[in-house]
């Protein structure tokens, strides 16, 4: 599975990650159209954290134990057992924001452009590769590839998952969540 990781030592705080995230999550996916004065508000799923000279960008870590999904009252937030991606089903989400309250990294946003729904980093799955990582001018955002932790599979496959009846098998020792 993929995770985006920040490297604060080389983050220059330019904010381009935010810009390109907004572009990717706009209707047009075009930087000029996304930021046009009358365009609908754009939302960045990246938080740029800054304090003095320190900075880093934070987006969803696709947690093994996703508190947002555990707290989700509707079942809209799930962790995909195949890709490890924590996704929100906009059709199911009612915008109660429990996920926002649960996420210890504060990286889930409100999207009230079209109904109320939570919005979060989806690793630009339509695009194939996260735009923020691609556009980071100093490699301060990198893709971390790690094997899927079987215990982390939040077994709530929505339609589309290929996983059938057989359960996730694993042999490796997995830490408990203590």
């Amino acid at each position: 599975m993929w995770r985006i990781r920040a490297i604060p030592e080389v983050c220059i705080g330019c904010g381009l990650c935010r810009v390109w995230c907004k572009v990717e999550h706009s209707d047009s996916k075009n930087i000029h159209k996304a930021f046009k004065p009358n365009a609908p508000e754009t939302i960045s799923c990246v938080e740029l954290e800054e304090s003095g000279c320190e900075s880093f960008a934070m987006q969803c870590r696709q947690c093994d134990e996703p508190l947002c999904a555990y707290g989700c009252i509707t079942g809209a937030m799930t962790k995909d057992p195949d890709t490890g991606l924590v996704t929100v089903d906009k059709k199911k989400c009612v915008g109660c924001w429990t996920c926002i309250l649960m996420c210890p990294n504060g990286v889930i946003k409100r999207d009230e452009r079209n109904g109320r729904s939570a919005i979060k980093c989806d690793l630009c799955k339509d695009r194939g590769f996260p735009s923020c990582v691609e556009h980071c001018p100093n490699d301060a955002l990198v893709i971390e590839e790690s094997p899927m932790n079987p215990l982390a599979a939040h077994s709530a496959p929505l339609s589309g998952s290929s996983r059938g009846d057989e359960n996730i098998l694993f042999s490796e020792e997995v830490d408990d969540d203590e």
Partner: peptide, 12 residues
Amino acid sequence: DRCIKCEVCIKQ
């Protein structure tokens, strides 16, 4: 026409 007011220039 091209400026999107992202403030990257200001920070840089």
